[in-house]
Amino acid sequence: MLRHEFQPGRLIAGTALVAAAVVYGGDAGGAWETPWFVVIPLVVGGLCLAGGVGAVTGLVRRRRGRPAPEGTDTADHARTTGG
């Protein structure tokens, strides 16, 4: 039994931030030389992608009639699902 819902947007955001940490970690460890501005597109792009995926996931879940995740407006959820 799952303890929580799978949230792909959070997975993508975490992956992007871990990738940024690996890039800076390799630079700090002397494995390679990384300019300071390289991580900005990685983090911003990953967070934008995660936001888009999260929005699409929310729309798909509402359309299928699944319960909304905690923290969402229950009145809006009841109006869209008829409950």
Rank of each mutant, 00 (worst) to 15 (best):
T81S: 13
Y24I: 15
A20T: 13
F37W: 06
A13F: 00
G30S: 13
T81W: 03
A31L: 14
P69Q: 07
R3L: 10
G65R: 14
T34P: 09
G71P: 07
W36R: 08
E33S: 13
R61W: 02
G9Q: 04
G26E: 09
P35K: 02
V53L: 08
A19R: 02
V44Y: 08
W36I: 12
A28P: 11
L59G: 13
A50P: 03
R10P: 13
M1C: 11
A50G: 04
R62C: 03
G29F: 14
T81P: 03
A13Q: 02
L11K: 08
R66A: 09
F6P: 10
Y24M: 07
D73S: 05
D73M: 00
G9N: 04
L42E: 10
R79A: 14
V18M: 13
P41T: 04
A16D: 08
G29H: 06
G54W: 04
I40F: 10
A16G: 15
T15W: 02
F6W: 09
F37D: 14
G65N: 10
D73W: 00
R63N: 10
D76G: 12
R62Y: 03
P35H: 06
I40N: 12
V44D: 07
P8M: 11
V56C: 07
V43E: 11
L47E: 15
P41K: 01
G65W: 03
G26Y: 13
D27R: 09
T57V: 02
L42G: 14
A20F: 06
D76C: 15
A19E: 03
V39E: 13
A19M: 08
V39Y: 06
T34W: 05
D76E: 14
R62T: 00
V43S: 11
M1I: 02
L11H: 14
R3K: 11
A13N: 02
G54V: 00
A68H: 01
R63F: 10
L47Y: 07
F37H: 05
V18F: 12
H4G: 12
D76W: 02
P35D: 12
G25W: 05
